[in-house]
Write a protein that binds this DNA or RNA. Structure first.
Lengths: 146, 146
DNA sequence: TATAAAAAAGATAAAAGAGTATTTTTTTCT
DNA sequence: AGAAAAAAATACTCTTTTATCTTTTTTATA
């Protein structure tokens, strides 16, 4: 469904949002240690999220990553699109390419109509779930990150 | 969502089900030509489906593949499980492993509850959509296979 | 200003997925 | 029996994803 990179990215953003705000920065060493993810691999993912204005990164001593936006304004859709692209929301389920209503309206693939509903539900879920929601739920337990 | 192998397999099974029954066999050369798929790669996929009793294969002149079951009894779920496994139906959306109700019932991951519904809809769609359904819809057009 | 801490960048390595090529086995038909 | 046609099996290549390692750049602060 989602790539490893994407899942790691989502968990890292939830983790950052759950951190107590002392100076507002969370180091990648700490994130990768607590989430049990490979440090340099996670670094690349967070860099992508920083380029998309979802995270802020700062170098130097006491540097690290923090959210660039209100966690209530960051959705799962934002993160998934940044890391995996929007293929999961547009690709046909049995063909290689997109299979939107426009593409196939006169020549729909046989699963098209039935899958359209599920695709809409997927988009609805991902676009309505915010990092704020997830960080609140995550707050109640430690193990969710692993 | 689904691997290339899996999508190719689904399309091939729909194609076989759509063929006029002369001697009941469809050669892989014909399938790969009409679906524009690489022949030896598709062969491996069809072999997997044959091992799972979804297809029958016969060697020798006039050999080929045919359905081993009533197409009304072959579901998308059968094919997806054969080729991609059941990870898509069991894996957690943000973790590496399964995240079923049993696994996380006392310690659910933060997206668990919201995603559970979508997962159920996915299973419902895949298990209720049969090759018979798809072959009938496919009958009306040529381009759907490509 | 020098140092150390941190992320950024780049190069490389391992694993998995996708695809190709070749040989072997089976079967039909002459 | 022999030849040809078809799938099965095997081994290999290419690409992408995942992961690691090393070097560079930035920056706070002693």
């Amino acid at each position: 469904m989602l790539s490893s990179s994407c899942r790691y990215g989502i968990r890292a953003v939830i983790y950052i949002a759950s951190q107590p705000r002392i100076n507002g920065k969370t180091g990648i060493r700490q994130i990768s240690k607590d989430l049990e993810l490979p440090t340099p691999f996670l670094a690349k993912i967070l860099q992508q999220l920083a380029r998309q204005k979802i995270l802020t990164s700062s170098k130097g001593p006491h540097g690290g990553f923090s959210l660039q936006k209100d966690p209530r304004k960051i959705t799962l859709l934002d993160i998934v699109k940044t890391i995996d692209g929007d293929g999961i929301f547009t690709n046909c389920i049995i063909h290689n390419s997109t299979c939107t209503v426009v593409d196939h309206e006169k020549d729909p693939c046989p699963v098209h109509d039935d899958y359209a509903y599920l695709r809409e539900e997927l988009i609805r879920l991902f676009s309505s779930t915010t990092i704020s929601d997830l960080a609140m739920k995550a707050g109640s337990t430690k193990k969710i990150f692993i």
